[in-house]
Amino acid sequence: MQERNQSASLRRALTLLDHVREHPGLTLTQLAEAAGLSKSTVLRLTVPLVEAKLLDRDRRTGVYRLGHGTLRLGQAYLATLDLRAVAAGESHRLMSEVRETVHLVVHDHPHVVYIDKVENEANVRMASRIGSRGPLHSTAVGKAILAWLPEELLAELVLEPRTRHTITDAERLRAELAHIRRRGYAVDDRENEPEVRCVAAPIFNHHDAVAAAISVSGLTSRITAARVRELGPLVAGAAVRISRKLGSTSR
């Protein structure tokens, strides 16, 4: 019984940590309401998180933010990802060639996690952040990965609309994924952000399983529908070269 209670407490503490990650600057009352817990329970659960520097609570305002301990964990995690080092050269080469923002993501079902970003400083900066997550169904990087995942994983997705262009019908999404497999790259045509287009291609690991994706993103005024057709093969080529460096023989 004690072990079960400890497990439940751990899950609730991790839920609180996730709420603060998504909404930094929550007060005790706001955090308790978001988690559906009493304020006394939140206080009890956050004490060890604060002690471990995973959370920080402002002494003056009482608001919670992520602590620097999460940065250490994140850096340790990223250090184990050879993908970032392997893809760095291709990411910078692709950005120099197309002069748009390049993203590198990994799959964390039902999301993608942005692990690297190379920006063209002369352009309007994209709002994405390293460490942030995005949905599989509405991002080009997500669809590039989803197209090579088992069919049953698609059924688990909640196809929430992000913009009026988001594909929310499962059959239409299946048809889109089949098209992605045929041409080798995916397109987010204002499906995740209203004024942004993105072109992405899948990256395969040494098991020839899809594990990541690389993309080019920009405002629709710069990445027109016609330019998408030019960018697609360039992004796909970069993804193939990264995949080969990871030991893949599938492409």
Rank of each mutant, 00 (worst) to 15 (best):
R99D: 07
A88T: 00
R125T: 11
E90M: 00
H111N: 15
A147I: 04
K117G: 01
N120R: 08
L136W: 04
R99A: 04
V102R: 04
H137Y: 07
D116R: 11
R125G: 08
R99K: 14
H92N: 01
R93D: 09
T139V: 08
H111T: 14
P135A: 11
S128L: 01
Y114R: 09
P110G: 14
K117R: 12
V112C: 12
V106H: 10
H137R: 08
V102A: 03
D108L: 15
E152M: 09
R133M: 14
I115R: 10
S128P: 00
E121W: 14
V124Q: 06
V141I: 06
S132T: 05
R129I: 01
M95T: 01
A88N: 05
P135Q: 11
E151N: 13
L146D: 12
L146P: 11
A122F: 04
R125W: 08
L146T: 13
S132F: 04
H137M: 07
G89N: 00
H92A: 05
K143Y: 02
L154G: 13
L149W: 08
P150T: 10
L136E: 03
H92I: 01
A88P: 01
D116S: 12
L154M: 14
S91K: 01
N123H: 03
L154E: 14
G134F: 03
L94A: 00
D108E: 15
I130R: 07
N120S: 09
H103D: 01
H92L: 01
V141N: 14
V113I: 13
E151L: 15
R125H: 11
A147M: 07
E97Q: 03
H111V: 13
T139P: 03
A147S: 08
V98A: 08
G131R: 12
R129T: 05
R129E: 08
S128V: 09
H103Y: 03
E90P: 00
E119H: 11
